[in-house]
Computed example of a mutant assay.
Amino acid sequence: MTGVVRELAEAAHEHGKPITAAVFPTPSIARTLVRQDWDRWPLDRFFPMLYQSFYREDIPWIGDGVREGVAALAATDGDVRGGTATPLNAGLYLPALDPPALAEAVVTAREAGAAGVSTFEMDGLTDDHLAAIRDATA
C-alpha cells in the first residue's frame, strides 16, 4: 500500500495538486489492524478516523490518538515529506456525538495538536452541531 500511495502522491504533486487520506485512527492501530503505515506516506494532510465509539472509548481517547499521530508524523516528516509539518485533522464520527459531545471532541482534538477536525456522516450535521463547533472554536 505504501508504494501505491507514494506513486499517487508523486503524480498528484507533479500536477500541483495536494493529496490527502482518511486513515485508521492511529499509526499503531493502523499497522496492527490493516497494515497501513500512514505516518510514512508522503501526503499533504491526514484525516485519521478517530471514531471513539467504534473502539468503545471515550472522548479523551481522541486526544490520545491525535497526540500519537502528530508525534509519528513529526518523527517521519524529514524523511518522507521534506521536513515540513504535516497537518492532521481529527476525523470525528458525527452519529456518535451529540452537539455537546462534539464540542468536547473538537476542543480535545485541538488541544492535543490537531490542525482541525473533520466530521464523517453525510446527512447528520444539524444546526445544533454547527453551533457547538462554532462555540468550541471561538
Rank of each mutant, 00 (worst) to 15 (best):
E104D: 14
G91W: 02
Y51T: 09
E111K: 12
D123S: 07
G69F: 01
G116I: 09
A101S: 15
V117P: 01
A72T: 04
W61I: 10
V66N: 02
D64V: 03
D58K: 08
A112P: 08
A114P: 10
L73G: 03
R45D: 09
L50S: 10
G116Y: 03
G83L: 14
F120D: 09
R56Q: 10
T76M: 07
P87I: 12
G113C: 06
A114L: 07
V80M: 05
L97T: 10
W61S: 13
V66F: 06
A96N: 12
T108N: 07
L73T: 09
A96F: 03
G113E: 08
L94W: 00
L88W: 02
F54D: 13
P99Y: 11
E121A: 14
A75I: 13
Y51G: 07
V117I: 15
E57G: 08
D98A: 09
L73S: 13
P87S: 10
E68M: 09
A109Y: 05
V106A: 01
V80Y: 00
E104M: 08
P100G: 13
A75Q: 12
D123F: 06
A74R: 14
G63W: 00
R45P: 04
F46K: 02
E111T: 15
A115Y: 10
I62A: 01
L97M: 12
G65K: 05
S118Y: 12
S118R: 00
D123G: 11
E57V: 00
V70W: 05
P100S: 11
Y93K: 06
L88D: 01
F46N: 08
L73A: 14
Y51P: 09
T86W: 09
S53I: 10
Q52L: 01
A101P: 13
A71V: 03
P100T: 02
V66P: 03
L97D: 02
V66E: 00
L102R: 00
P100K: 06
P99T: 08
A85D: 15
L102F: 12
T108L: 04
V106Q: 00
E111L: 10
G78H: 07
N89W: 13
P87Y: 02
P60R: 14
D58E: 15
G91D: 11
L50Y: 06
L92R: 07
L50I: 14
Q52W: 10
R45Q: 14
I62D: 01
Q52A: 15
T119E: 01
G83T: 10
